[in-house]
Simulated assay, not measured.
Amino acid sequence: MIKKVAEVIKNSSYCIAFSGAGISVESGVPPFRGETGIWNRYNPQLLDLSYFYNQPGKSWEAIREIFYDFFSVAKPNGAHLALAKLEQDGILKAVVTQNIDNLHYDAGSKEVYEFHGNSQKLKCLDCNTYYDAKEVNLKVIPPKCDKCGGLLKPDFIFFGEGIPPEAYQKSFDAAQKADVVIVIGSTGEVMPACQVPVVAKQSGATIIEINPDDSNFTHQITDYHVKMKAAEAMEAIVKEIYN
């Protein structure tokens, strides 16, 4: 299977990757869903946009624990690095990710479409100034803008908030152009992101799924299912491609 999948990727003309929480679990980032998911420990309401506006302090307490205590120690794993290598060599054209942890960028990927935004940027809701989260004192919450005193919000999508238009457009444009899609660590449950591989399949793409378990994609659109963890699978595929 690894040999066949490597051949398909190597011979592709427009290969993209679509990543979900499963790729980052191996970097220590907890998933949102499932037995060990974040929503088993926190009320999802804390990340509802209207709740954030009404109770920014309480919302920020959870945000700090979930996204900045957990994510701050996470490093790219072999799967992130493998995708960056494939992009560097012109084999992979883009990564569409549901993740907000910045690990694709940290690994060296350049063409990354962040469907749900990025936790490492904070935006002032009053003057639209952006901040690097690492440069903001999150011991004082809710954090405020240095320029105008406005409330800072993480630049990722809350419940009740729309998908960033540019990321949305680029993701589906890439899906329509793709002849191969590597789906890594996605359950295929989150709308509308899960439609990206579906649109690619409808446009004629071959779907390679890397997931130790079955997903909503497996029996619907998947052509090759590599039942391995993300890092192990991608490292083996890249090794085979360069043999």
Results as ranks from 00 to 15, higher is better:
2 I>K: 05
2 I>H: 09
3 K>M: 00
5 V>E: 08
5 V>F: 00
8 V>A: 03
8 V>D: 01
10 K>D: 02
11 N>F: 03
13 S>V: 11
18 F>D: 01
18 F>T: 03
19 S>D: 14
20 G>Y: 12
20 G>K: 05
22 G>C: 12
23 I>M: 13
24 S>K: 12
24 S>H: 08
25 V>H: 00
30 P>A: 04
35 E>M: 02
36 T>M: 10
37 G>T: 09
38 I>E: 04
41 R>P: 00
45 Q>G: 01
48 D>S: 12
49 L>I: 15
49 L>E: 14
55 Q>G: 00
59 S>P: 12
62 A>C: 08
64 R>G: 03
64 R>F: 14
65 E>H: 07
65 E>K: 15
67 F>C: 07
68 Y>I: 00
71 F>R: 03
71 F>A: 02
71 F>D: 02
74 A>H: 01
75 K>Y: 07
76 P>Y: 10
78 G>K: 13
78 G>Q: 07
82 A>V: 07
83 L>V: 08
83 L>G: 05
85 K>Y: 10
88 Q>I: 00
89 D>Q: 14
89 D>I: 13
92 L>Y: 01
94 A>M: 11
95 V>N: 06
96 V>D: 01
96 V>F: 06
98 Q>R: 04
100 I>C: 10
101 D>G: 02
101 D>H: 11
103 L>Y: 13
104 H>N: 10
104 H>V: 08
107 A>N: 05
108 G>H: 05
110 K>R: 13
111 E>L: 01
112 V>Y: 01
114 E>M: 07
120 Q>I: 02
123 K>G: 00
124 C>D: 10
124 C>S: 11
124 C>N: 13
126 D>Q: 14
128 N>C: 08
128 N>W: 11
129 T>I: 15
130 Y>H: 14
132 D>V: 09
132 D>P: 02
133 A>C: 07
134 K>Y: 14
136 V>H: 04
137 N>G: 06
140 V>G: 00
140 V>T: 13
141 I>C: 10
141 I>Y: 06
142 P>K: 05
146 D>Y: 05
148 C>P: 06
149 G>P: 12
151 L>I: 14
152 L>E: 04
154 P>H: 01
155 D>I: 06
156 F>S: 04
158 F>W: 11
159 F>N: 01
160 G>I: 07
162 G>H: 11
163 I>L: 11
163 I>R: 08
163 I>G: 09
164 P>A: 13
165 P>D: 13
167 A>Q: 04
171 S>I: 06
171 S>K: 09
174 A>Y: 03
175 A>Q: 04
175 A>G: 14
177 K>F: 03
179 D>P: 12
182 I>Q: 07
183 V>L: 15
184 I>D: 09
185 G>Q: 06
187 T>V: 01
187 T>L: 12
188 G>M: 09
189 E>W: 02
193 A>N: 09
193 A>L: 04
198 V>D: 03
200 A>C: 10
201 K>N: 06
203 S>Y: 13
204 G>D: 11
205 A>V: 01
205 A>K: 04
209 E>R: 05
210 I>D: 06
211 N>M: 08
213 D>V: 08
215 S>N: 09
218 T>M: 04
219 H>Y: 15
224 Y>E: 14
224 Y>D: 02
224 Y>R: 08
225 H>T: 08
226 V>C: 12
227 K>S: 05
231 A>F: 00
232 E>F: 02
233 A>N: 09
234 M>V: 03
235 E>V: 15
242 Y>F: 15
